[in-house]
């Protein structure tokens, strides 16, 4: 990831630090990241903030050997699509080397990158195995 700049990172701190999503009461569905407009109900939706508990299951995964520049020093690393208990799926790194489809994981708090050696440090969620 190239330098995203402090405001762009800061704007999503609630989501990146705490997995805050949204819930539409009309269709009873939880979304992460938050949706201003419910994708199913659109203007009929009744959207409110919902904090997710951060546990879920690995749907699929890869080990990244050729990352984007921001993650060059970190490869190889594990990346997965995790289905959270509340329903939404997220793309996130897994801090364990060994993972399998179906593994139960929980969110942890890690350093995601930085805007260069003297820039803002980006923190956010990754996941670790629960076994």
């Amino acid at each position: 990831m190239t330098e995203m700049g402090a405001p762009r990172f800061w704007r999503n701190i609630q989501q990146r630090y705490r997995l805050t999503g949204t819930r539409c009461d009309t269709c009873d569905t939880t979304y992460f990241p938050p949706r201003q407009l419910c994708p199913e109900c659109r203007r009929e939706g009744d959207v409110e903030e919902q904090e997710l508990n951060g546990t879920g299951t690995v749907v699929t995964y890869t080990t990244v050997h050729e990352p984007s520049p921001e993650y060059e020093g970190d490869s190889p690393y594990s990346l997965a699509i995790v289905e959270l208990d509340e329903g939404p799926r997220v793309t996130a790194q897994i801090v364990d080397d060994e993972i399998q489809v179906g593994d139960e994981v929980e969110a942890c708090f890690r350093r995601m990158g930085e805007g260069g050696g003297d820039g803002v440090i980006y923190y956010g969620f990754k996941f670790r195995s629960l076994d």
């Binding site: 020093g73 942890c108 708090f109 890690r110 350093r111 440090i121």
Partner: peptide, 16 residues
């Protein structure tokens, strides 16, 4: 510490 761990990340883990 792992490559992506620092005083802030560990503080958060302990605080949680």
């Amino acid at each position: 510490p792992d490559l992506d761990e620092d005083t802030a990340t560990m503080s958060v883990e302990a605080a949680r």
